[in-house]
């Protein structure tokens, strides 16, 4: 059985069909890039993976366990913005990843000292060791995202979800973040889903690139059909030599 299995998901809001017939199976340690036009449901799909929303039909399982009804520790998330807690110091943001599932969200005194040391070690490794006592507002956008990724990974999730994590960064910082993420992945062998607008980024980082699109289109009722996965590229070795084109399964052949 695959690590993450998405089984024939449908999502509707009233008569609006957002997603339909989405199936996907992902092995442990795979990096899945999710691309597609704006409003094609790729962020919605991520929210379903996060269990922030429930599909109208179908189910998502991790390691074959019961589908989750709300976000939890097995799913880590990094958003484009607001990913770290602004009222906590940089170090406390990392400690929070250990303490938040304790009663009252606090560690016992002995544990706290150890957790702070671990947090400091984490910060040293991601190059924020000198900023431990600063508040996140004092960090640059790239530093904040690095902190957010480290925070998410500190909670040791089963899968890591990234919602356009580098969308607000300048191109140089973005390249640094790619290296940072690649390094972290080699260390942790984490299963990652990343929504991105940047195709190049998707192919560079991903093992697979999946594309969301609306294969069916009713001109008299645009909301009748939802989006689904139309392409599933193998992105290892720069996408060569081989790709699975699912278009034939979904798209109507041109008349």
């Amino acid at each position: 059985m695959s690590f993450v299995s998405v089984d024939n998901i449908f999502l509707r809001y009233g008569t609006f069909s957002i997603l339909e017939r989405v199936s996907l199976s992902v092995e442990e340690g795979e990096f899945i890039s999710i691309v597609g036009a704006s409003g094609c449901g790729k962020s919605t799909f991520l929210r379903l993976l996060l269990a922030e929303e429930q599909p109208t039909r179908g189910e998502i399982r991790i390691e074959g366990r019961e589908p989750a009804v709300e976000p939890g520790r097995e799913r880590g998330i990094v958003f484009q913005r607001y990913s770290v807690f602004p009222h906590m110091s940089v170090r406390d943001n990392i400690v929070a990843a250990e303490s938040f599932d304790k009663p009252l969200g606090r560690l016992k005194r002995g544990e706290r000292v150890a957790a702070r040391e671990r947090a400091q070690a984490t910060l040293d490794r991601i190059g924020l060791g000198h900023m431990g006592h600063a508040y996140p507002t004092a960090l640059s956008g790239g530093m904040q995202q690095r902190l957010a990724i480290a925070q998410a990974l500190t909670a040791r999730p089963r899968i890591l979800l990234l919602d356009e994590p580098f969308g607000a960064l300048d191109p140089g910082t973005r390249l640094q973040m790619h290296d940072f993420l690649t390094e972290l992945r080699e260390e942790t062998k984490m299963t990652v889903f990343m929504v991105t607008h940047d195709l190049q980024e998707g192919f560079k980082l991903g093992d697979r690139v999946i594309v969301f699109d609306k294969p069916r289109w009713d001109p008299t009722d645009p909301s009748a059909y939802g989006a689904t996965i139309t392409y599933d590229f193998d992105a290892r070795n720069n996408g060569i030599p081989f790709q699975d084109i699912l278009e034939a399964d979904h798209a109507h052949p041109p008349a």
Partner: peptide
């Protein structure tokens, strides 16, 4: 409060009480 922060706290395992005390209250 940005919804992202509430979701983030949930992915770190925070209960409703912890979210109230450690995320919402200080903010």
């Amino acid at each position: 409060i940005p919804h992202e922060l509430i979701v983030k706290a949930q992915t770190l395992g925070a209960s409703s009480l912890v979210i109230a005390l450690r995320v919402a209250l200080p903010q």
